[in-house]
């Protein structure tokens, strides 16, 4: 793994690297070089299989973190390429030309996080949400509970048994 990362370091800027497991490593690169890195990994390092493309919402830092998780079926190792993009007006280079499945992932990310991938086919068509007109629901500043209470008709009389609260009450009744 380390050799692969070193080889990549020679060609592309690698901001940080995490050796998660023996067969799983994450590298962070910058926005401009991310798709190039993925292409290089696919064409020269044998990472022929796209496992997934996903996003994480770091609300406090104001960034979305995209992860391209790639798999090398021959060596049975996984490599994740991370890239951070600004949270306001998020936009990323499309990589739909690398794998056919990539377009679907990008469609999903556009729908759920509002991350735009210019040029990705059928990106703006509704994917899972049918006729959604609110903000992208996977963003952390989207209050699902409030939305659900406004939209669906909540039945009253619902009580909650949060374990932390419950134990606090039980063990320290005085407060």
């Amino acid at each position: 793994m380390k050799e692969i990362v070193n080889r990549i370091k020679e060609k592309f800027p690698v901001i940080s690297e995490t050796y998660q497991r023996e067969d799983l490593t994450f590298i962070t690169t910058d926005k401009i070089h991310a798709v190039e890195t993925v292409t290089h990994l696919r064409d020269y390092e044998g990472f022929k299989h796209l496992v997934l493309l996903t996003a994480v919402d770091w609300l406090e830092d104001g960034v979305f973190q995209l992860t391209y998780l790639l798999n090398n079926p021959k060596e049975k190792i996984d490599l994740g390429v991370r890239v951070q993009i600004p949270r306001d007006n998020p936009e990323m280079t499309s990589a739909h030309h690398l794998w056919a499945a990539m377009a679907t992932y990008q469609r999903e990310l556009y729908e759920m996080f509002g991350i735009s991938f210019p040029g990705s086919p059928r990106m703006k068509e509704p994917f899972i949400l049918d006729g959604w007109d609110g903000p992208p629901p996977y963003r952390r500043d989207f209050d699902t509970l409030k939305y659900a209470e406004d939209t669906f008709f909540p039945r009253s009389g619902r009580s909650t048994n949060d374990p932390a609260e419950h134990m606090k009450k039980k063990m320290y009744p005085e407060g």
Binding site: I128, L129, G134, P137, F142, T144, L145, Y147, A148, E149, T151, F152, F153, P154, R155, R158
Partner: peptide, 10 residues
């Protein structure tokens, strides 16, 4: 799923 954005409640 009471607080889900995508499933009905009642």
């Amino acid at each position: 799923y009471f607080d889900s954005y995508n499933t009905i409640n009642r």
